[in-house]
Each structure stands twice: as C-alpha cells, then as structure tokens.
Nucleic acid binder design. Structure first.
Length: 710
DNA sequence: CAAGATGTAATTTTT
DNA sequence: TTACATCTTG
C-alpha cells in the first residue's frame, strides 16, 4: 500500500546556510522549498511538522516575495492556530497580515466578506451545537421523541459534513422520506434567525464559491497560498472546500498523518489524505519519518500498536533519541488508587512536566479530587468549556439580541432569566407575532404586549425598557463596559450572585470573566459581533502551565502537544478503547481502528517517560464495574514494558487506618477508629462515631477519610 | 407561573 | 453519582 510513496531523492537545494533552513533535515528542507505543484507532507508523530509548515510560510514571505495577505494557514483547533501564528511571527517580521485560522473561522471570514452574494446576512451569529439542537427541538418536540430528535439532529449535522443540502442526496444519510422535509424545515427556521450553525460555515462557503464564479475568482486571487495542518482530520465538506479554493495559481500544501486521524465522529475521512494525490494531480509527496520527540522504546511501542490497523499508509518512524526507559504498565485495583498513584508519581518528581491523559472527560473527577486533597497543582483542560456554561450562555444570549434581534434561540433563553413571569405559554403567544414582526423578536414582544396577562406584561415591559436602555448605550462605551452594564441592569449579576454561596460565586465570577474577556474590543455593534463570534469559534486561552502544573486532558485534546512524562489512565477495554454499549451491533472495525489511533496519539505525546494505568474496577454512574485490561496493552512489545501488578497481592498488613485515627464519613460524620483489620482482601474499619454509635466501614466502598490534626 | 419533588438517563471525542 | 426533565403543588 505504501510502495508508491517512497521518499523521493532530494536534489540540489538553494542556500542551506539560510537561517530558516538551518537545523532542518533533508526531507524537511525539501518540504519547505518545494514549489510549483500541490504538496502533501506525510508527517509522523514528532517529526517536526508544525516546524516545517511554519518555516514554509516564513520562507515564502522572506525569499519568494509572497505577500502575507495572500497566505491562509488553516488548522482544526484553536490551540494549533494560535501556536502556528506565534511561531510564524517569531520566525519572520514579514508575517503581519497572514491569515491563520481554524477551518470554521476561516469560512466565517469568507462568508462575512462575500456572503451577501448568496443572500447570507453577513452579521450572522454562530449557533453552537446546543443552540442548533434547541432550534430543532422547538421544531419537532410535538411529533418526535427526544432520542429521535437527537438522531435526526445528528443526521442533519452529518449531511452538512458531507455538504449535502436538503434538496441534495439526503437518502445517503437517512432513507426516511420525512428526513428531507425535516432538514428543509430546520434550514428554513435557521435562516429565519439569520444565524448559522457550525456545519453551515463550511457548507455555505462551498455553495458560495461553487455558485458564484466571480467570488470564487476573487477568493482564489486573494488567498493564493494555502496550507492545511492536521489534514487527516478534514471531512468531506472541508475537502470540497479545498477543491473550490484551489485555482490555477494556488500554492496548496497539506500536512497530516493518517495514523493520527481521530475525528471521524465529526465526519473526518481518512480517505482525504489517502487519496490526496489522486484528487490533486501532480502532487508531490514528502514523508517526514525522523522523530525528534520520543525515546526509542516509546516510539517502538506506539508504532507496534498502530501497526495493527489495516487502513493506513504505513510508515517507519526513526528515533533520534536513544532507547530511554521502559514503559511502565501498572495494574491497580480501582480508579481511586490510580489517582493516588498519580499523586505519588508527582510527589516523587514534581518538576517533571507531566500530562495525565484519559479517554473521556468524566474520568477527570477522581484526579481533581485526589489532587485537590494533596494540594497538587493541576490544570484541567477543556472539561466544561467556559462559553458553554449556563450562566455564560445566558449572558451571551442577552448580548446576541443586540447584534441580531432575530435570534429566536437567544430570546427564548434570556426572556425569563432572571424570572420575569414569562413562562412557556406566554412565550408561545409572544412568538405568534413573529411573522408580523418580520422575525424581530423584540418587535414581536412589543406587538404582543396587549394580549398578555398582567404579570407577564409587566415583565415584558421591564425587558423592553432594559433593551432600549442598553441599545442606547452600545455606541457610547467599550464592549467590556457594555457587557458589564448589561449584566448589571438585566439582573444577571444579582441572579447568579444570589444562588447558593459557593456555586453562585463561581458563576458570578464567570460573568466577570466574560467582561474581562472583552477587554480588547473597542465598542459598538461590530465589535460586539466580533467578540460573540469568538465565543463560539474560539476557546478561551488558558495560561500555559506556568511552572509545574500537571495537565489533566483528554486524548483528543493532546493533539499537537508533547510532554516529558505522559500518564495514560483507564487502559481498560470499554474505557480506552471506548466501546459503544450496543451489544447487538457487530464490533465495528473502523471504530476500533480509530480508538487505536487515538491511543497512538496519546502514547506519542511522551518525550521521556510513558506510564500506563489499568484499573480492575472503576466507579461508573455511581456503580462499581469490573473491567479487563485494554486490548491495546497486549499489542505493546513485552520487551519495552515494565509491568507492576498491585492487584493480585493482598495489600496485606499495612492498613490505612489505625486505632485512634480521627475520621470523617460523608453520611455519618466524625468519629474515632476503634480497630482496623483486613477481611476478605478489604480493610474493615470499626469506628466509634461522635453520635455515640459504633459502625464498621469498608473504606473501599465508602468515603471514609482520615482527618488530620483537629 | 414558580418552586420543589420525583424520576430517569447518562459518558465518547470538538469546531 | 449527577444532571436534567417532567410532574406536583402552592
């Protein structure tokens, strides 16, 4: 499968002494210098792919006379975009004006520039998945059950990933004849709000370029140098987009690694990279197989695992770094022990840069708990995203109405938060005036006033007054001040401050954080719109782990990152690989291969040390469930492993609790330990509670905690 | 209409 | 276990 793509001989090069080319290996240099035809860089993990792509841009700007305005570098994640921009800027002072964006935000840019040609309201806001789902729910909740709606929603999203409009080949996705109609209605409703969903950003851009040759020509002229990072994660729509962007004078280069394709659930198609050379004739393929990141053992283990996949080009990564230590594989009895051992690893070597990687966000909990208990500094990456928190979404909904008064979803969300006596019934009767109000929700509210009950009417009037008041201020102040005023006058500040202490404060602080997030924005409607686009399309930046914070992160989120020490947790079948619980479905080879690639990504993040944890049982939904070791563990060559099994030997004599210990139990409160012994492999602690009662606890199953010096 | 009570479903992964 | 949805009561 890989024979046709053997590395081509590298021919005479221009000035290899140029500082930009210094320290590049032959293949990297070749990739930087290639011109004239599409370029596919197949870059293995840790092979310096970002370095190559950024150097390529810097080289073009410095020596080929490429104008920065003509360069578009497209990535998949904000993190990657941010990093790329930084690196280009540090390489050349000619970088000002280069466009570095995610696919989605690049398309948003194009649609705002040229969208009016195809009737798109160019001051659209972007609905995230929740908003879009709400829209569909409102449309279907009478006729469909919740999980049916969910399925239909996924199908609509998938249609957009495939760039299929309602009048297109929708049978490919859902053969139910009702589907096309539902999809059409959804699009109609969405269009009525004047907003776009994630999928639209790509799909509508494709349609724009496809149907308006003048726009296409202008865009091709404008962005004549296009680079795509993480190309293996592109979906069908993004591939079609590239084809549309690719004109006679376009310099197109893409970088990717088929072994690191981990987004097929979002429509990513590995075939995009596997067949790139067929789609873009005369493609030059360059392979980067020299790994500069990981030790030999880590690389050998990761390569061995991923070699079990069938659908891949195949490559050999060469280590430049010597063997290194063996990979440590530790079996532990449960997820809490796993977390405790991670804490211990930290204590042994607190200065080593460390990431704790897990498959699903919910796994982070035990680490958060244990690390907090032991005062270990950690950074939790992307668990519940800032802009998806309820209070922040409320705030954003309110603000959205000032940019787009047709935003029905935002209106529904904020009209009765804080409570204004407008419930579901009232809301429905207000929205009946929507057609008459030409979609403007505030106008519709105004028109409905006379028909409302007294209580609802006064609430509505308060809201209208608030809106007018704030709208009058919009151009007079900065975005940040405007948001502050809006939070204050709408009562959102008080509403969230008033809630029960701890959580209320956190929510209030999040609102304040939103205010400071807008700091750099001047003021007025356009600035607010730009700020709001950022809230859906851009994750807020977290400070880099200043110093020695352990990073808690999902495997997906680690893409493009590297750490001295990597700890992969939950190496159990069902967890990693994650296996869908549908017993009746046949085991899905492709899904399993994607899990394996994800595991490969996680493994190859490690520079020095790789540690794998596999727990015998794990607390899921508040129930203990037994698990068996991940099948991927068996694919790692034995000679690279150092296995510690702490589960078979009884943790015998050393009981955690001793007579006289002060303890606390979640349900029963404080008490003193009377005695502690091992019974049937578990520690049994007899406690005399302060209430006077005596009870025996198995700390294994209950939350008995030692309380220090009281 | 709001607040409290009760019931139930849920865990992939991200723009 | 928790979060969220739906039902019940004031």
């Amino acid at each position: 499968m890989c024979g046709e793509w053997t590395s081509q001989r590298y021919t005479a090069m221009s000035d290899t002494n140029h500082p930009l080319l210094a320290n590049l290996n032959d293949a990297q240099r070749e990739a930087v210098l290639h011109t004239g035809s599409p370029l596919l860089i197949l870059a293995g993990a840790g092979s310096g792919k970002t370095r190559v792509i950024t150097t390529r841009i810097a080289w073009a700007l410095e020596t080929l006379g490429t104008r920065p305005q003509s360069v578009a570098a497209v990535t998949f994640t904000n993190k990657a975009a941010r990093e790329m921009e930084e690196r280009i800027t540090s390489m050349t002072d000619k970088a000002l004006g280069v466009t570095v964006r995610t696919f989605h935000s690049f398309c948003a840019l194009l649609l705002r520039m040229y969208g009016s040609a195809c009737g798109i309201n160019t001051s659209f806001l972007i609905y995230d998945e929740t908003d879009a789902m709400t829209l569909l729910k409102n449309l279907l909740k009478q006729q469909y059950a919740k999980n049916e709606i969910k399925q239909l929603f996924e199908d609509i999203m998938r249609a957009k990933d495939l760039c299929i409009a309602p009048d297109g080949d929708v049978e490919r996705i859902n053969r139910n004849p009702a589907f096309a109609e539902i999809y059409r209605q959804y699009e109609e409703r969405l269009a009525a709000t004047g907003n776009l969903d994630f999928g639209d950003l790509i799909m509508k851009t494709v349609f724009l370029l496809r149907e308006h040759s003048d726009v296409r020509a202008a865009v091709q002229m404008r962005f004549s140098t296009i680079l795509v990072d993480e190309y293996q994660d592109s979906n069908a729509a993004q591939f079609i987009l590239l084809k549309e962007l690719y004109g006679p004078g376009t310099s197109l280069s893409v970088v990717g690694d088929d072994d690191q394709s981990i987004y097929s659930f979002r429509g990513a198609e590995i075939s995009n990279i596997l067949t790139f050379h067929e789609s873009f004739p005369n493609t030059r393929v360059i392979r980067l197989e020299q790994n500069y990141r990981s030790t030999g053992r880590i690389l050998a283990a990761a390569s061995a695992v991923v070699s079990h996949n069938q659908g891949r080009l195949g490559k050999t990564l060469l280590s430049t770094r010597g063997e290194g230590n063996k990979i440590s594989l530790r079996f532990v009895k449960d997820n809490e022990t796993e977390a405790l051992q991670c804490a211990k690893l930290y204590d042994e070597n607190p200065d080593m840069e460390t990431a704790i990687i897990y498959r699903v966000n919910s796994q982070s909990r035990s680490f958060e708990e244990v690390f907090t208990r032991f005062s270990i500094p950690f950074l939790l990456v992307g668990a519940l995203r800032f802009y998806e928190r309820a209070e922040v979404k409320d705030a954003i909904a309110l603000l959205s109405l000032f940019v787009n008064p047709k935003d029905e979803i935002a209106f529904r969300r904020i009209i009765n938060t804080p409570v204004r006596g407008i419930g579901e019934k009232t809301l429905a009767s207000i929205l009946e005036y929507l057609p008459e109000a030409k979609g403007d929700v505030l106008e519709s509210l105004r028109l409905s006033l006379d028909s409302l009950s007294k209580r609802a009417r006064s609430g509505a009037q308060v809201f209208l007054a608030l809106y007018q008041d704030l709208a009058g201020q919009m151009d007079l102040t900065t975005t940040s001040m405007f948001i502050h005023e809006a939070m204050f006058k709408s009562g959102l500040y008080d509403f969230y401050r008033g809630q029960d202490k701890a959580e209320g404060t956190a929510k209030y602080q999040n609102l304040e954080e939103l205010v400071s997030a807008a700091q750099a924005f001047p003021g007025g409607k356009d600035a607010l719109a730009t700020f709001l686009e950022g809230t859906t399309l851009r994750a807020p930046e977290y400070e880099e782990p200043a110093g020695k914070r352990v990073m808690l992160i999902t495997a997906h989120n680690t893409k493009g990152l590297e750490f001295d020490r990597v700890i992969i947790t939950g190496c159990e079948d069902g967890v990693f690989p994650m296996i869908r619980t549908n017993m009746w479905e046949e085991p899905d080879r492709e899904a399993m291969e994607e899990e394996r690639r994800l595991f490969y990504v996680a493994m190859t993040r490690a520079r020095e040390q790789l540690i794998l944890f596999s727990a015998r049982r794990r607390l899921l939904f508040g129930r203990w469930s037994d698990s068996s070791p991940s099948r991927f563990l068996a694919e790692i060559p034995q000679e690279t492993l150092d296995i510690k099994d702490n589960t078979s030997k009884p943790e015998s004599m050393d009981t955690r609790f001793q007579r006289g210990d002060r303890v606390f139990h979640d349900d029963f409160g404080y008490g003193f330990v009377v005695e502690s012994s091992i019974k049937e492999g578990n520690e049994a602690v007899k406690v005399r509670l302060d209430s006077g009662r005596t009870a025996v606890f198995i700390p294994e199953y209950t939350s008995l905690m030692k309380v220090e010096g009281e």
